[in-house]
Write a protein that binds this DNA or RNA. Structure first.
Length: 561
RNA sequence: UGGCCUAUGGUGUAAUUGGCAACACUCCGGUUUUUGGUACCGUCAUUCAAGGUUCGAGUCCUUGUGGGCCAACCA
């Protein structure tokens, strides 16, 4: 799409406005600031695409900054996973930054605030402080320590840093306004004591800065011009600006916070905390379980970076509440996979077909196109023989006109091979069909150009040769939740809406060319869906994930009757 | 009893800033097809409500209504 013709979102309008008012384009700088306390999910993807997309649009640097101010929740494992995910999405950051790199500067500035009478050490319990905070409609009251002498504050803060106190004994608070209608301005905490090792600074510090004190100052230190975050931080903006006022130097770029609405995806969760529960309670097999809306889960499932970027692009950026239907994501996945995947044949619910007039010892290797959407992709050869598997649901002893597939006495084309006709079938004692006997038309070979090969038959089936097929494990996924918005019910926990059938593991048979495939490779199983090779796969035992099914209009026709 | 944000089809996003409500997905119907896939075509909204300004309002004004967020030593 032509970038110039595309309409701007409200964020881009803000930037254009700033540029028009004289802000220099060279000073544009953005950042993506995750906390390394979990894996990135589809919601973060939206934010990543926003920030890095702006970087690309304006040719501006974008930093990857880890907001690592809470050692109780953060780990190196998450830092590594986040870097991998952002890279995989196709973006390059300018600097890799850590809020923890600014701990000393933040501390120095805090001392500066204390000296200016803008911060004080409070020695109350958190309960007492909460009580004094007031309510959204009633003003708060001052702490008895609010007017502590500057020298005493300096001394206590210094001793907090030196580790002389236990957790919870003291905090450093900004002295702002206990009567503000914005609860966040009622003397917010800047530092708390935490005797915990940090994944980067180890035990260098035992006081850690809070988010509000850290974030804007970090933006400022990195000279980020526009700092975008989600709507729940809108109230924090006043505080962000207040903290900036305390240290701002006119000659520098003053960062500007603006907020956008988090993207909610139907039938899933977009919250690290809640996804962590799924992992910890064993509902899924880790953060990269293919059912997870995490970037690592989607990667393992077979979603492509392109499809996720295109999805992020179409859902856009606004300030409204939203619930994006997951079918839109799936559309983008199919759209991309349709263009790039090799078409292969795999039978997931096999029934044997014997072609009675085909010589018993004979086998043929028939050419078949790799991808009709890509003329450059060429052809490969697949084996045909007397016994093949077809999909159990592709045969009926009798059926109405709408059923285009195999039925007794009728013909159907085997994709890339011959036209066959069902003559009879055998059943076990329970009446289940165990084998279908067919005859084939030797002159009907695909691509042979004969009159018989050009005959129109309504149905075309996929198949695999029994003697050549590879038995494989196939993992079929469905949405994790039955409710479209599982975590918005006030009286119910989202766990109540778990889909018991979100994972089905079956045995299937795939064509022999797949033996050469590698982990992560994506394919279209013709007439079924897109599949990729899972990380659990081995040369001895192939494991496939169903990325997403093909659109299935037959299922709809059948449902109606 | 407070403050902040928000409202356009079933869903998501637009509308040259006052000038024929557009694009995509979904649903439904159809054409093509050696994938019931793909591609292509068609149907589906008087813009939360009520007033007002105007030749003309999704856009401006007034009054309502609905939804979300805000009282962690989390981010």
């Amino acid at each position: 799409m032509n970038e110039g013709e595309k309409s701007l979102n409200f964020i881009e309008h803000i930037i254009e406005e700033d540029l028009k008012n004289g802000f220099s384009k060279e000073n544009l700088r953005f950042r993506f600031p995750p906390e390394p306390n979990g894996y990135l999910h589809i919601g973060h993807a939206s934010s990543i695409c926003l920030n890095f997309g702006l970087g690309l649009r304006y040719n501006s640097p974008v930093n990857l900054r880890f907001d690592d101010t809470n050692p109780a929740k953060e780990e190196q494992e998450y830092v590594d996973a986040i870097k991998k995910d952002v890279s995989w999405l196709g973006y390059e950051w300018n600097h890799e930054c850590f809020a923890s790199d600014y701990f000393q500067q933040l501390y120095d500035w805090a001392v500066h605030l204390i000296k200016g009478g803008k911060a004080y050490v409070d020695s109350q319990s958190s309960e007492a402080m909460a009580e004094q905070k007031g309510t959204p409609t009633a003003p708060g009251t001052a702490s008895p320590f609010r007017d502590r002498a500057i020298a005493e504050n300096l001394d206590l803060f210094d001793r907090m840093k030196k580790g002389e106190f236990k957790e919870g004994e003291h905090v450093l608070r900004a002295k702002i306004d206990m009567a503000s209608s914005n609860m966040l301005m009622r003397d917010p905490i800047m530092y708390r004591i935490l005797h915990k090792a940090h994944h980067r600074t180890n035990t260098d510090w035992c006081i850690y800065p809070m988010y509000d004190w850290t974030h804007g100052e970090s933006d400022y230190l990195e000279q980020v011009s526009h700092s975008f975050c989600t709507l729940e931080f809108a109230m924090h903006r006043e505080l962000y600006d207040w903290f900036l006022d305390q240290v701002y130097d006119e000659s520098k770029t003053r960062p500007k916070q603006r907020e956008f609405a988090r993207r909610n995806l139907s039938h899933t969760l977009v919250s690290k905390r809640k996804l962590l529960r799924l992992v910890e309670e064993g509902v899924v097999n880790g953060w990269d379980d293919p059912r997870m809306p995490t970037i690592s889960g989607m990667r393992r499932r077979g979603y492509t970076p392109e499809s996720i970027r295109n999805f992020a692009d179409t859902i856009g950026i606004t300030k409204r509440e939203n619930l994006v239907d997951v079918s839109l994501l799936e559309f983008h996945v199919r759209e991309h996979l349709n263009k790039i995947t090799t078409r292969v044949m795999g039978v997931l619910d096999p029934i044997k077909v014997v072609i009675t007039n085909y010589p018993e010892e004979q086998e043929e290797w028939l050419p078949i196109e790799n991808n009709p959407e890509d003329l450059e992709s060429g052809t490969r050869e697949i084996p045909f023989s007397r016994e093949i598997y077809i999909e159990r649901e592709d045969f009926r002893e009798e059926a109405n006109k709408k059923f285009f597939r195999l039925k007794l006495g009728k013909e159907v084309r085997l994709k890339g091979a011959y036209i066959i006709k069902a003559e009879s079938c055998t059943k076990d004692t329970d009446g289940n069909i165990t084998e279908i006997q067919c005859t084939y038309d030797p002159k009907s070979k695909s691509g042979s150009g004969t009159e018989e090969s050009l005959r129109k038959v309504k149905g075309t089936l996929h198949w695999v040769s029994v003697a050549h097929a590879i038995e494989s494990e196939i993992r079929l996924y469905d949405r994790l939740f039955t409710d479209e918005s599982p975590d918005t019910h006030k009286d119910k926990d989202f766990m109540e809406f778990l889909n018991p059938d979100s994972l089905k593991v079956i045995k299937g048979y795939v064509e022999p060319s797949l033996k050469e495939a590698n982990i992560g490779d994506c394919f279209q199983f013709q007439r079924i869906g897109y599949f990729n090779i899972d990380t659990d796969s081995t040369p001895e035992k192939l494991v496939f994930n169903r990325t997403v099914g093909l659109r299935d209009s037959w299922a709809k026709i059948e449902q109606k009757s």
